[in-house]
Write a protein that binds this DNA or RNA. Structure first.
Lengths: 222, 222
DNA sequence: GTCTATAAAGTGATAGAC
DNA sequence: GTCTATCACTTTATAGAC
């Protein structure tokens, strides 16, 4: 790490630029020349600060995970609290009232994250890693996704008492799929729905649809 | 059809090898040397048969679309027939009996396609194009996906009379998401469910879950 | 910490012999 | 149709001056 502010500025500029270029081109096609140029930083400094291309790539993921954590952290903390205040004596209606809203809030957060134009880069980076995991996938999954799916699974289990943990987790996978599709198959979805982009209006339609789907999948009436 | 079978063999060997290498490395990172080596074909012949790297890439997509069409074609034809035998006078129960089985058959087919280890390469190629569409995306969407989503949308509309076409299409998107997640987020799903692979047993569990979800989303009881 | 300059290896494409 | 050989260019990484 570099304590001096000069090096820190350089590091951060490189990470920001690299996030965009790696997302756009993928690890291999991305060029360190491009990244250095986009950052306005001399190319040789990449070697100095990150050792090599892979070191820079990992730094991009660590930075991304940290930023996403800051976004969904508050929601996750609320859910943790709700889960800790657990009470198996609750009747079905009370459980729904307690656990469903935070579950929907979490999926809303993920959806907003996936659909937002702002986080385009992150989505691209993560999806590439899902397809062909490198060491960077561990940075993402262990540092972030593990907690999200754990929270979702526990919420689903509370909402569906009969389910085993693996049943609940399978249901979580399909719930996540409904959110994921708007990022992973974005080009196809836009074509299918005849949308130009996923803006606020479109996001609202999607959110409503997903809420209904989740309620239906959890066998909860309106 | 080719008078000289020699060139045809070369073409096909190159397409098979290129499918694997493009899927593994992506368009940019894939090397024509690698492809030629994997095919056991001289590198210069790529230029002769496909003009350049992009020509080979497009040939890979055309070949892929053709093969997938052959797989889902029969199911699609059955659905077309069912839709043509349309009758608005049918009551709800009869519509469910007529339209739900083919819908589930189609999603089952897509799921099997997405989960199969065999079609690993296709999934990778398509997902990459979804994220950063090139002209190859059109080959895939227009040649294949358009028909699938059209069939699904029409089935959903018949099963949910009140829906507008865009409502039905949005529902189709979320249905496809539940299938897609097992390919697009495969690494994460395996981790989440503590599976080593998606084999026949796992596929069966997924299929059951998705059937239940779809029935719930369509507001159809068991 | 930052720069210039360059080494070493890889890339896609193609000319020309057979 | 297929091959060898090679060109023109780009890539990452790094040595060495400041």
């Amino acid at each position: 790490m570099n304590a001096s502010p000069r090096g820190k500025v350089t590091r951060e500029a490189l990470i920001v630029a690299a996030t965009g270029v790696f997302a756009r081109d993928g690890f291999h096609a991305a060029s360190l020349r491009d990244i250095a140029l986009a950052a306005g930083i001399n190319q040789a400094l990449i070697g100095y600060h990150f050792r090599n291309k892979e070191g820079l790539y990992l730094a991009v993921f660590e930075n991304m995970v940290e930023q996403i954590r800051q976004r969904i952290g508050p929601i996750a903390d609320v859910i943790d609290a709700a889960l800790k205040a657990a009470d198996s004596a609750l009747d079905r209606e009370a459980r729904i009232e307690l656990y469903l809203p935070p579950l929907l809030r979490l999926t809303d957060g993920l959806l907003a994250l996936m659909a937002s134009y702002e986080s385009d880069n992150w989505g691209q980076l993560i999806l590439r890693e899902q397809q062909a995991p490198t060491v960077a996938f561990g940075v993402f999954y262990d540092g972030l996704m593990q907690r999200v799916v754990s929270l979702l699974s526990r919420l689903v289990q509370r909402l569906r008492e009969g389910d085993t943990e693996s049943e609940a987790r399978l249901l979580v996978a399909t719930i996540l799929g409904q959110v994921l599709v708007f990022r992973a198959a974005r080009a196809g979805v836009l074509q299918l729905l005849q949308w130009q982009r996923i803006g606020a209006d479109e996001l609202s339609l999607i959110r409503t649809r997903i809420h209904r789907n989740i309620r239906a999948m959890l066998e909860i009436g309106d």
